[in-house]
């Protein structure tokens, strides 16, 4: 059962933020959703969890240098840039 405190903690971990009203709605949604997910909890523990097996680790591409996109191209989508870098709020 979810309560607003648990939802708020999970939101913090998820880097999300909700208003009080949104938090109550999300708490209700998560309670309903987790009730559906509880279905998996009693599954046979003897079965090995699946791991993606389609990657051939013996045949990966070579670790060779390749020209990447120019900074100016990459930064075109950023809202705030300066001197070929992303601008962020002051951290220290």
């Amino acid at each position: 059962m979810f309560d607003p405190n648990r939802t708020a903690h999970l939101a913090e971990l998820s880097k999300l933020e909700f208003t009080d009203e949104e938090l109550l709605k999300m708490t209700k949604d998560m309670t309903d959703i987790i009730a559906l997910m509880d279905k998996v909890c009693d599954f046979n523990p003897e079965i090995k969890p699946y791991t993606l097996d389609s990657v051939d680790y013996d045949d990966l591409r070579g670790d060779t240098y390749k020209e990447s996109y120019p900074n100016s191209e990459i930064l075109k989508n950023a809202k705030n840039t300066k001197n070929d870098s992303f601008v962020v709020p002051k951290v220290v």
Binding site: V40, C41, F43, N44, P45, I47, K48, P49, Y50
Partner: peptide
């Protein structure tokens, strides 16, 4: 309980 069991179901 959740993620690993989901992966077990995937195997099954």
């Amino acid at each position: 309980a959740y993620y690993n069991n989901a992966r077990r179901i995937r195997t099954q």
